[in-house]
Simulated scan of single mutants.
Amino acid sequence: MVVNYIFTTFQVSKLVESVYNGCGVVVSNKNIRERVKILKKDYVEVRQLLSMNDCELDHDSGRVTADTLAWEELLKGIPNFGKWRYKLCPRHDEFEAIYENDSTT
């Protein structure tokens, strides 16, 4: 079961302000909340991968690594995890600090 991490209205408004101040881009509260959902989903998937014996996180590159046979077996059972063979998760440790107490396995 995954518990939804909920940002307060104040926190979301601060994020909107930070994006504007940092990039000059205006985003809405909805944009922030949707992005947080996507990041959480990615974190949960990577955490599931890392819980498997053959998968590790290369902290230098942010890539989930496993040998070719392990990836082939994994993708037979969970094909949508194939994206993690190439997609990076360089901030996994930061996400873990945010979400580790928010999810149960």
Rank of each mutant, 00 (worst) to 15 (best):
N21K: 14
V12H: 08
V25Y: 07
P79Q: 04
E96Q: 08
V3H: 14
V26R: 12
V27C: 11
Q48Y: 15
C89D: 03
G22D: 07
N4H: 12
S28M: 03
Q48S: 12
K87F: 09
I78C: 03
F81S: 11
S13W: 00
R91Q: 08
R35V: 06
E45Q: 13
N29D: 11
N4S: 14
E73K: 15
V46Y: 06
D67H: 06
K40H: 11
V3A: 14
G62P: 06
W71T: 05
E72F: 13
V36H: 13
K30F: 01
V16W: 06
G22K: 07
K40T: 05
F10K: 15
T105M: 04
Q48T: 09
K83R: 13
S61Q: 04
V27G: 08
K30M: 00
N53G: 11
F7E: 07
R33G: 00
I32T: 01
G77S: 09
P90F: 05
N29W: 00
K30Y: 06
T104M: 09
D58S: 05
V25I: 11
G77N: 11
C89A: 11
E45M: 05
Y20E: 15
Y5Q: 04
F95C: 09
K87L: 11
V12G: 07
E72K: 14
A66V: 02
Y43E: 04
S13E: 15
G62Y: 03
F10E: 15
S28E: 09
I38A: 12
N29I: 00
M1V: 10
S61H: 03
E94H: 09
H92W: 13
N53W: 13
R35N: 13
D58G: 03
E100M: 09
V19D: 09
W71N: 03
K14S: 10
G62D: 04
L49W: 15
R91H: 14
T68L: 04
S28H: 05
Y5C: 03
E96V: 00
K87E: 13
D102C: 13
D102K: 09
G82H: 08
V2F: 07
V44L: 13
T68H: 05
Y43M: 02
R33C: 00
V16Q: 14
D54I: 02
V3W: 13
P90W: 06
